[in-house]
Design a protein around this nucleic acid. Structure first.
Lengths: 311, 311
DNA sequence: CAACAGTTGTATAATTTTTGTATAAATAAT
DNA sequence: ATTATTTATACAAAAATTATACAACTGTTG
């Protein structure tokens, strides 16, 4: 499939600026300073951007949103173009421990933003946090407490269901983008991942998926509230090295029985994560499942123990 | 189908100017400077435009509308005429026919990728398409047909539920990221957006949300399967200028009644999108709802009619 | 902790290009 | 004879170009 680039490049810089939200000055600065994008030129030197260039800009925007430095974006683009994979984003093994008031302040602002349905304020706080702290930390000390705090609050105020939905939409998009990005980079064994029947909330599943992916495995997401029969079929068809299920709620006895049966049937190990691992740990282990603890390190360890290490 | 151009070429330049809204001076400048349009001439050199010429001008106008530079438009027209090579932007059904095999090929590859649970292959195809064609076109000619094709297929093969979930996860992340990004840019009136009770699929809602946002409004997403009471509360609390609900399935009579009541209660207009607008259009209109057609242009028009234009 | 250098988005200035429109002189149409 | 259309030249506003500068941050180093 051959394209004549010259004939595709039609958009002047102003249009591109409007389409992408990037100031023309900035676009030129990126090109001059980092060689980013480099569109066609007319005989007189005016820039003509193609659809492909615009797509590149959106990719840049995605990377920036994940906290990448603009000066390093070019390499990342090239790496992901040449197919083979880079180590994703800089994760500083930070030495930050307490400083809890920072987080409670962020938390407070995010709660306020949610009750005003103000996505921009939500984003502002989140991206402020993400620009200071590594992603994992923000997830663990901000997003998870936020979800927890609001869940508690909503139980007392049932009419605030809309706010819960709003926040979940935001988090789903946010975590989903991160998962998607990391997913394309990962290359280890394939793990199926789904929420058990009755679990309708997606965000904790996405968090678990992120942990799995950043442990070096590939994750195939099958979403929330997934029937066990589907998982059984999918394991075979997808040639999965393992199955990870998620449950926050208490599992009924019947489901536990079905899970035991499933883990005996399947040729691959079955892991379980989520809050149910606290209260029902032994029951789950008796059913032949491998319990994933809430912390990332423990999750990684458990996966590595039961599976060949991915790298 | 060959026409005798001479018999069709009858419109003097002034008439064409009136029909198209383009100043005669400008029409001549386009012809002189870029070789655009070139109508027949009388023996003494007066321009005589044919119906086809006028159609060409319409196409030019569409391209300009999408931001193409006038100096580049000629190449694009020629490209899409020679059928080969992607005319980047043209949205007209007339010239799409010749290029459908591009889309069926992409479609085929995506179907294959889904049944192999291969996110990277999925991404590769999608990203190739998106780098050549504008987002809207890819959504309309690739993603929507893909969803439709696989839905049909899954009805015949119920065991492939896992594949459906896999694809929906992918699309949700993809569309969600786009929505999130656009959302932060948008600044118009706020519209609440949700799937009606019984509608569990998120992707069509996200597509509708993207249309709303690119029409210049802000969208507050409340997710799929949303109870009407939640919407009623949320409209007040979020100070929304409108409510958009989505439904692909047929709406039961009871829900129609509740919708009528809702639209009478709320101070803002209520819009409805999705496949149900085809079969239940009049019933929905009787209930006081404003129907959003499937195409983006119609959606935009309907929103603008009922709300103050955002920009 | 202060000083310094690097990063990065924006701003400004001086020029040039693009693009729609205006004008003039000549010819054609009605 | 009056009204249109044509070509060619000209003009002006909008938009693009490069180059330089700057402000707000970042991180490093003494």
């Amino acid at each position: 499939m051959i394209h004549d680039d010259a004939t595709e490049a039609v958009f002047p810089i102003r249009v591109v600026a409007e389409k992408t939200g990037i100031n023309p000055v900035t676009l030129r600065a990126w090109e001059r300073r980092y060689g980013l994008v480099r569109p066609q030129r007319t005989a007189k030197g005016h820039r003509l951007y193609s659809e492909h260039d615009i797509h590149t800009i959106t990719r840049i925007l995605e990377l920036l949103q994940q906290g990448a430095a603009i000066s390093r974006v070019k390499d990342m683009l090239e790496e992901s173009d040449t197919g083979h994979a880079p180590g994703a984003l800089p994760h500083e093994p930070g030495t930050e421990g307490a400083r809890t008031e920072v987080w409670t302040e962020h938390l407070r602002r995010m709660v306020t933003a949610v009750s005003a349905f103000d996505e921009r304020a939500l984003e502002a706080t989140y991206s402020e946090a993400i620009s200071v702290y590594p992603v994992d930390l923000v997830t663990r000390l901000l997003l998870e407490p936020l979800l927890h705090e609001l869940t508690v609050r909503w139980e007392a105020l049932p009419h605030a269901e809309a706010e819960r939905r709003f926040l979940q939409g935001y988090l789903r998009n946010k975590l989903g983008a991160r998962f998607h990005y990391q997913s394309l980079q990962s290359s280890g064994a394939r793990l199926l991942l789904a929420g058990l029947p009755g679990e309708h909330v997606e965000t904790p599943i996405l968090m678990l998926a992120l942990a799995v992916v950043s442990a070096g495995y590939r994750a195939i997401l099958l979403g929330a509230d997934c029937p066990l029969e589907v998982l059984e079929h999918a394991c075979a068809r997808a040639d999965a090295a393992g199955l990870v299920v998620h449950a926050d709620l208490l599992l009924p006895q019947q489901l536990l029985g079905q899970l035991r049966q499933l883990s005996e049937t399947l040729p691959c190990p079955v892991f379980v994560g989520g809050n149910c691992t606290g209260s029902q740990r032994t029951a789950l282990q008796d059913a032949g499942l491998i319990v994933l603890d809430a912390d990332a390190a423990g999750t990684l360890q458990a996966l590595r123990n039961a599976l060949p290490a991915p790298d």
